[in-house]
Amino acid sequence: MSALQVAFAGTPEFAAQALAAILDAGFAVPLVLTQPDRPAGRGMKLTASPVKQLAQARGLAVDQPERLRTPAQRAALQAAAPDVLVVAAYGLLLPPEVLTLPRLGCINIHASLLPRWRGAAPIHRAIQAGDRHSGITIMQMDEGLDTGPILLARSIPILPEDTTGSLHDRLAALGADLVVEALHRLPEGLPATPQPREGVTYAAKISKAEAALDWCRPAAELARAVRAFNPFPGAQGRLGGTTIKIWQAQPADLSGEPGKVLASSPEGIVVACGEGALRLTELQRPGARRMTVREFLAGFPVSVGDRFAIAAD
């Protein structure tokens, strides 16, 4: 058991993997901060975050403040007296009073190679932009938005078939390994390197409005959007008044009027784009599960000449 007292702040599965690794490495975790329980599922039942579920299963103290602005909201963290606070996809901004509370400060696990893709949705935006690499940055936190100095960073390739879901899982595992390495080295004085001023980009939060594909855009761009929006919010198009989710698609060497169906077979529904065409191979109609294009066409016929709606329609 390490003598280092490590408080943890995080909410989703990405963060839960890091917390599990910290515990398995033998670090003492006197307190876990996570978002308040939120309604989820069809019944909108109050549901604990993955981090809270793991913390409770491991017998850890959990606090769920709405904010960390007041002394009362920070009381549990103050009482825990951690040496360091590890933050991973927590969902709350940390005020200066929290950043300076642990003697070794606060460190963040960020799912990009900073300074590229600061912000809320670095995995989505890296795939959407066509980046060839992503990675994990362990950062010493300051008052800016992902602007603190870099303690550790490691790169991995973005594979041609990667979705946000698959890349998320690989980055979560990498982040768990890298934060444990950082914690082992932190008491010795892990060097902190200021972020370069060049190459800064911001990963804006994903909105559901972005899910609608603009068929006037190039097919290569739309193929990346399909992968970036899988599993959330799910790329979609409207055909005959029905909203169809598109889970897998690849560029095709055809052309035509944007939105028009150029081919429809068990190999794919080919839709013309502003440049080239997009072959849709996994789809989902309302109330149904995800289907291969063969299964989809059996219950929802699509013919050559049919047209997906575009923004101007």
Results as ranks from 00 to 15, higher is better:
60 L>N: 06
42 R>Y: 07
70 T>S: 15
301 P>G: 07
303 S>P: 02
313 D>I: 01
8 F>Y: 13
71 P>Y: 06
150 I>W: 03
127 I>E: 01
267 E>F: 06
73 Q>S: 15
134 S>D: 03
5 Q>N: 14
155 S>V: 13
267 E>Q: 14
176 A>W: 07
158 I>M: 02
146 D>S: 06
277 A>M: 01
99 L>A: 10
37 D>V: 14
32 V>W: 14
263 A>P: 00
294 R>N: 08
136 I>L: 01
20 A>I: 03
3 A>D: 14
157 P>W: 05
164 T>C: 04
120 A>P: 06
281 T>Q: 12
311 A>P: 01
12 P>H: 13
79 A>G: 07
86 V>Y: 04
213 L>E: 10
260 K>P: 00
175 G>Q: 12
243 T>G: 03
231 P>Y: 04
245 K>H: 08
311 A>K: 13
289 R>V: 02
44 M>P: 02
66 E>N: 10
58 R>K: 15
221 E>A: 14
154 R>A: 13
24 D>A: 15
225 A>R: 13
103 R>S: 12
48 A>V: 05
184 H>D: 05
246 I>H: 03
170 R>E: 08
201 T>N: 08
125 R>K: 02
108 N>H: 03
75 A>C: 06
257 E>I: 04
123 I>Y: 10
90 Y>R: 09
85 L>A: 03
194 P>W: 11
